[in-house]
Write a protein that binds this DNA or RNA. Structure first.
Lengths: 314, 314
DNA sequence: ATCAGCAGTTTGTCTAAGACAAACGGGCAT
DNA sequence: ATGCCCGTTTGTCTTAGACAAACTGCTGAT
């Protein structure tokens, strides 16, 4: 229902721009009404036609919003100035709080390979590190810091989306590879890992699963974007002891909280519910165990095993 | 900006229902106006509040639409009758056209394991098949038919979303595993694989990549949902000979065509552009090679290698 | 000086009804 | 059976207004 028109560079409909920039159609219209940008040309019938320049500036604005700018400021700001301020934005939000000690510059080296567009070198380096360190240290000291680092570099505009994509793909592969070679203890408690509807980031899931597999837990991965009722059914069918939900920073918190509460109500009380991932730090939900840091995850695991043992003993 | 209200089972806002059912908010409103369903209760301020029953029926309608029902009919239809007609819907759309010969009931066995919620058995079976058949036959005779089969079973309601998720996860892991053990020919032409914005299905990508890796092509995976300009940049940086785009049946065709044309314009003429996956059958775009079947993919690969050789020779 | 609470502003999403182009379906003619 | 045409269906776009949640910044108390 959309005219396939000339398509010479950049005649985008509002729907396409929304997808291209991540700014919802509603927002595009209200920004135009309130701040005067973007003010696209119109077709004969009145529908908006955005240009490449507008899409570029909208992308910039979207990035500004993500690092904390207010909408009105970012939209009204001069694009050149905004770009500069984003780049030099040494408002390094994350002070390296509990920086895990990574092996000598490993993360730096990985980043260099990715920026050099050398996937093979990155893979080789990851393989080497994984074999040297073993699953748990690999996750905590390499994979997890690397993911955070890539995210930070992206926010500062020093790294393009394609680099992030490339790195994610390579790391995911290595995580699954390492996971596959671990033998499963038949006695180990089973834990189901997935993400809520709308959440498409699987790296947190894969890292957690490998970490757990390395410490006498049998993880079951269910992929991303799973409807809540399906999570419940899967948990029952697989007879798990706990369900782990991974929440990325991009997640919409109120939806997540609603979904988690719904899950907690629907799951039997003897199945624990864990919420991990950077986004989980902002979430408040009764009856849900926070497993944002590896330490918290350890604690949750220990609790689970104890419960499991006592259940077996009784 | 959404009230966190009681959340006792099923008080969903229009936005949540849209996400839960896959029916856009616009559609929900216009269906209500035109067909009288759903007609949710209102809050004091007039905003819609949907019930669990409405969400359930909407899910049913969404499934009906996907198998070809017209919106008006599906929305007005009696839910019970609709459900029946969906289940007994032996309108087996896909006549087993060029049914690839699968090894003796392998796909059936896999399906059984998945339905029994036995991921380990499924994994073992896949591993065995992959080792016996080698990468290409594994993809063509097992992975690909199994994916189609799971899709068909899901459309007929004989298999839940969670089964599909579970199977996808397991198969993706196995595909990557097999891929990882293949040595790469340094001379092989490099091909970049990814999906367009909005497309989140990666299985087609993984299958194709493994298939290619098994025949002297060096695939580079870039994950899913990649902005078109990033695809172009990656193609240039990685010095690829072709870019492969995977398109699922669920894709929005007009967006896809726009994106493909944009890609074709932006990529240098000496980089081929391939469109594969079931959804690609419906796509028309000049300068884009269709690689829907494995045969077409073979042909595209051969062309690529010949071009490559002549380029090296000259 | 630091923090809690309050008021004002900003912001995103919702609502309504109307419009229209593309896709679809069925009938007619070849 | 095949091709063409026309009316109907359907999804998305339009405007303008409203409001709740989140965020800012001020004030007063500790």
């Amino acid at each position: 229902m959309e005219t396939l028109r000339d398509a010479s560079s950049g005649n985008y409909s509002i729907r396409v721009v929304a997808r291209l920039t991540g700014v919802s159609a509603d927002k595009l219209r209200i920004w135009e009404r309130r701040y005067g940008f973007p003010s696209p040309n119109r077709r004969d019938n009145g529908s908006r036609v955005y240009s490449d320049a507008e899409v570029d500036r909208l992308r910039l604005i979207a990035r500004a919003l993500e690092v904390g700018y207010r909408a009105g400021d970012a939209v009204r700001a001069d694009p050149t100035a905004l770009r500069k301020s984003l780049e030099s934005s040494v408002r390094a939000l994350p002070p390296p709080e509990e920086a895990p000690v990574s092996p000598e510059g490993a993360v730096d080296r990985l980043l260099d390979y990715v920026l050099d567009d050398d996937p093979n070198a990155a893979t080789t380096e990851l393989r080497k590190l994984a074999n040297e360190l073993g699953p748990q240290r690999f996750v905590v000291e390499v994979a997890s810091p690397a993911v955070e680092r890539v995210g930070a570099e992206w926010r500062h505009g020093r790294l393009a989306v394609r680099h992030e994509h490339l790195f994610s793909t390579i790391l995911a592969t290595e995580l699954r590879l390492q996971h596959a070679v671990i033998d499963e203890d038949a006695e180990a408690p089973v834990v189901l890992f997935t993400t809520l509807p709308g959440e498409n980031h699987s790296l947190g899931l894969e890292m957690t699963a490998l970490y757990m597999a390395g410490s006498a837990i049998a993880p079951r991965l269910l992929g991303v974007d799973t409807p809540t009722d399906q999570i419940v059914e899967a948990a029952l069918a697989l007879e798990v002891s706990a369900v782990g939900i991974s929440i990325s920073t991009a997640a919409d918190i109120s939806s997540v909280e609603q979904d988690l509460l719904h899950l907690r109500r629907s799951l039997p009380a003897n199945i624990a519910l864990w919420a991990g991932g950077a986004g989980a730090a902002r979430v408040v939900a009764r009856g849900v165990t926070r497993t944002v840091s590896w330490l918290e995850l350890d604690r949750a695991m220990t609790t689970l095993k104890e419960l499991d043992d006592s259940a077996v003993a009784s």
